[in-house]
Design a protein around this nucleic acid. Structure first.
Lengths: 335, 335
DNA sequence: TCACATCATCGAACCGGTTCGGTAGGCTGA
DNA sequence: TCAGCCTACCGAACCGGTTCGATGATGTGA
């Protein structure tokens, strides 16, 4: 391994000059700079990022923490962030919290110990104490998807109440009244908002809500499957089901197929968010999709800006709320 | 930030003793050890992994490099490796090469600069020069999925010729003779092997192979889509199509739907590897699936072992070949 | 021509650990 | 009683960079 000292010796300058040449070339004489660059070339010197991190107290790593990388939604965001980060010379350290708040917290602390430059976080922790933890975190954090009230961080997400408002209105217009709603983990930002969108829209239309048709599927495939099963085995089963996310929506479709219900003939289905192969799934599912790419793009920009400049870092946190898009499929029918 | 020196001062010992206490507690007197642990507790001292990495020349990070994290196959492997790594105190640094060999190489070099402890790699580079590069890499590497001949590293993969052999035999038995084959990038280990499995089985059965029915879809969705389109717009289109991986197989199904062909009535379809929501896709696709979890498990074990002990590190590289499983769907019919 | 600012460069301290050679003291056995 | 060996601990060098205050040389304006 060739070090900065080897370069300095070869170029006949001090190590501090080499360091200067590397970090602010304009502050070094042209001729000296040239000699140093020659020396670097001929020794094949590569800066040691670990030593640099130790000395600077900051690495050039960015953390990406979310609940479920397998979900295409997070995957798309990750890809976008990774892309931009690489462009700016950052590496992305990815961590999957599996939706567990305690694990998530441990991961964040580990990332901080690595002197990570910044973190993009889809939080699963909740509550005031967690908000304080996030607020007092010394490392820049940009939150996406899940907002934690009181964390006082940039947030990039979608208009979640709108997602279910759109779907609910759509179903109401088709004449549905008994609508089953498979919700996410209560207490989680997006889950609560999506549930609210559904409830408010129903109430606004004067449609009665049967509380037993509102179930919690935990945003997971298995949870969604179990709850869809509960809904569909009832004698007075709903005429339509809304899945508050893609995994639970598809799980509901799976249950229908397993139980021999035809969609939409027997039961209508709508869900929030897309999945990669939705266009080969029969029937084409009616959904409201978030712009994951845009979301990742904004998150990355925001994070990189805060990392790069102290002024940007000092800016008050902002919320960026994207508008989701309605994609009509063939999984809903008029009653 | 409290450092090891603060702890040493408080415990009334030297820093080297604290370091000893941390790394090999048995070599420190019980009473001293106790004082040190008290001091650690009361100061809330947390070891600095960056400084440790610099001093040791090795970090406690593990790299995971593959072509496409979005593909469930790699996702499952990643999850398994991540899981085991965390258990052993390692963090996983994930990098997506997007299938580009040059980018992959750059990523590997970056990981090495981070003094990464080990790397799990699904290689996309090929050729002798690349094999040499991998062989001379100083960091432990375990390769999975894609074998690079001459790299002399542990390899965990599946019996690739068998995957397509099974599918081809299945189709032959159903009476198909004009079988379209959408292959992966030629030169890539798994792609070549799967193609061979197809060709050999066809030849072995005395079935004539129309070379124009063998196309290259690059293992990608878009590539698969384009090639399936080519196959299916022919007047003398094949009666069945084999996709050499899941993305291309589904892309072929998508093309059929777009063109109004019914599967399997008009064209039969079979593919290698599953996707997460295959059970809500109509028709259920006939496929041969690899055991991704087992594969990840083996890769992690092998890598962690080599990292942990010099003896294991010195062992000659081994190949672990898993047997894929045939899953019959409803996407193939008797001619 | 002189005081002073500017520029290019350097030396040394520092980031926070690990590791190795050494030493003092106590124990063993002949 | 003493050589020889552990055991428990320490000091210092080291990993490979960054950063800041200092210094001599050069340029500027009055």
């Amino acid at each position: 391994m060739t070090t900065i000292r080897d370069v300095a010796r070869l170029a006949g300058v001090s190590i501090s000059t080499v360091s200067l040449a590397l970090n602010s070339p304009k502050r070094v004489g042209v001729e000296t700079l040239d000699r140093i660059q020659q020396a670097i070339k001929s020794t094949g010197y590569r800066i040691d990022p670990v030593a640099q991190t130790l000395a600077r107290g900051r690495s050039s790593l960015i953390g990406f923490v979310s609940a479920n990388l397998g979900n295409m939604f997070f995957g798309d965001i990750r890809r976008e962030i990774e892309h931009q980060a690489l462009d700016h010379g950052y590496f992305v350290l990815i961590a999957d919290s599996s939706g567990r708040a305690d694990l998530e917290r441990a991961l964040l602390e580990r990332l901080e110990a690595q002197k990570i430059a910044g973190i993009a976080l889809a939080a699963n922790g909740r509550g005031e104490e967690y908000a304080t933890f996030l607020r007092d975190f010394k490392t820049p954090i940009v939150m996406f998807d899940q907002k934690v009230e009181g964390a006082e961080r940039d947030f990039i997400g979608s208009d979640n109440p709108l997602t279910t408002t759109i779907l609910t209105e759509h179903l109401l217009q088709l004449g549905h009244r008994r609508i089953g709603f498979i919700s996410g983990p209560s207490g989680l930002h997006t889950a609560d908002e999506r549930l609210k969108g559904f409830m408010d829209t129903m109430a606004g239309a004067g449609a009665e809500i049967d509380p037993s048709l509102v179930v919690e599927g935990g945003y997971t495939r298995t949870g969604g499957h179990a709850q869809a099963m509960r809904l569909l085995t009832r004698r007075d089963r709903p005429t339509a089901i809304i899945g508050a996310n893609n995994m639970m929506g598809l799980a509901a479709l799976q249950v229908m197929q397993e139980m021999g219900f035809r969609c939409p003939d027997d039961v209508s289905l709508a869900m929030v968010d897309d999945v990669p192969w939705s266009n080969v799934i029969t029937p084409r599912i009616t959904m409201v999709v978030q712009d994951a790419q845009k979301l990742g793009e904004l998150a990355a920009q925001r994070l990189l800006a805060r990392i790069a400049s102290p002024e940007a870092a000092a800016e008050p946190p902002r919320d960026f709320i994207l508008t989701p898009k309605f994609v009509r499929g063939e999984s809903t029918r008029r009653l």
